[in-house]
Amino acid sequence: MRLGVQFRGQVPGGTSRRWFTHSWPEGWRVVWMVVPTWPMVDGAAQIEWKVQVDRQAAGLIKYFIEIRNLTGGPVDIEARFAVLN
């Protein structure tokens, strides 16, 4: 298994932002996780995300990651991946 951070960013309060990451080999089984890194809040969920996929070329995959901030203030995030095979 390979683990890593693909990108970091910030999502303003009450909004959504969308990122993409490209040129992933189609044979890889990739799982995406998005984690809030600031502010540190022990309470309700701060974010939610969804992943969409596009075949950008023969043998290559592009992922679109949309992150929604559920709070009223900005939230810093980290998009993490795990390649399972």
Score class of each variant (00 low, 15 high):
residue 1 M to W: 02
residue 2 R to S: 06
residue 2 R to E: 02
residue 2 R to A: 04
residue 3 L to K: 10
residue 3 L to Y: 08
residue 3 L to E: 02
residue 5 V to A: 07
residue 5 V to R: 06
residue 5 V to E: 08
residue 6 Q to D: 05
residue 6 Q to L: 08
residue 7 F to R: 06
residue 7 F to T: 04
residue 7 F to Y: 08
residue 7 F to E: 05
residue 8 R to A: 06
residue 8 R to G: 05
residue 8 R to N: 07
residue 9 G to E: 07
residue 10 Q to T: 10
residue 10 Q to L: 10
residue 11 V to L: 03
residue 11 V to D: 03
residue 12 P to R: 09
residue 12 P to L: 07
residue 12 P to M: 08
residue 13 G to H: 03
residue 14 G to W: 06
residue 14 G to Q: 07
residue 15 T to L: 09
residue 15 T to N: 06
residue 16 S to R: 08
residue 16 S to H: 06
residue 17 R to Y: 12
residue 17 R to Q: 09
residue 17 R to I: 13
residue 18 R to M: 11
residue 19 W to M: 10
residue 20 F to T: 12
residue 20 F to Q: 13
residue 21 T to S: 10
residue 21 T to F: 11
residue 22 H to F: 11
residue 22 H to R: 13
residue 24 W to E: 12
residue 25 P to N: 12
residue 25 P to K: 14
residue 26 E to A: 14
residue 26 E to D: 13
residue 26 E to H: 14
residue 27 G to P: 08
residue 27 G to V: 10
residue 28 W to H: 15
residue 28 W to L: 15
residue 29 R to Y: 10
residue 29 R to D: 09
residue 30 V to K: 15
residue 32 W to R: 15
residue 34 V to Q: 12
residue 34 V to A: 11
residue 35 V to F: 11
residue 36 P to Y: 07
residue 36 P to G: 09
residue 37 T to C: 12
residue 37 T to R: 15
residue 38 W to K: 14
residue 39 P to V: 09
residue 40 M to H: 15
residue 40 M to Q: 15
residue 41 V to E: 13
residue 42 D to K: 14
residue 42 D to R: 15
residue 44 A to Q: 13
residue 44 A to M: 13
residue 44 A to I: 14
residue 45 A to G: 10
residue 45 A to I: 09
residue 46 Q to T: 09
residue 46 Q to D: 06
residue 48 E to R: 13
residue 48 E to P: 04
residue 49 W to M: 09
residue 49 W to K: 07
residue 49 W to P: 05
residue 49 W to T: 07
residue 50 K to N: 12
residue 51 V to Y: 09
residue 53 V to A: 11
residue 54 D to H: 11
residue 54 D to Q: 09
residue 55 R to L: 05
residue 55 R to G: 06
residue 55 R to C: 05
residue 55 R to P: 04
residue 56 Q to P: 13
residue 57 A to I: 07
residue 58 A to I: 08
residue 59 G to V: 04
residue 61 I to K: 05
residue 61 I to Y: 06
residue 61 I to C: 03
residue 62 K to Y: 00
residue 63 Y to P: 00
residue 63 Y to E: 01
residue 64 F to P: 00
residue 65 I to C: 02
residue 65 I to E: 01
residue 66 E to M: 01
residue 66 E to Q: 05
residue 66 E to C: 01
residue 67 I to L: 00
residue 67 I to N: 01
residue 67 I to M: 00
residue 68 R to C: 00
residue 69 N to L: 01
residue 70 L to M: 02
residue 70 L to I: 02
residue 70 L to C: 03
residue 71 T to P: 00
residue 71 T to M: 01
residue 72 G to A: 02
residue 72 G to P: 00
residue 73 G to P: 00
residue 73 G to T: 05
residue 73 G to K: 05
residue 73 G to W: 01
residue 74 P to H: 01
residue 75 V to D: 00
residue 76 D to G: 00
residue 76 D to L: 02
residue 76 D to R: 05
residue 77 I to T: 03
residue 78 E to P: 01
residue 79 A to R: 01
residue 79 A to V: 06
residue 80 R to G: 00
residue 81 F to Q: 01
residue 81 F to I: 03
residue 81 F to D: 00
residue 83 V to P: 05
residue 83 V to Q: 06
residue 84 L to H: 08
residue 85 N to M: 04
residue 85 N to C: 04
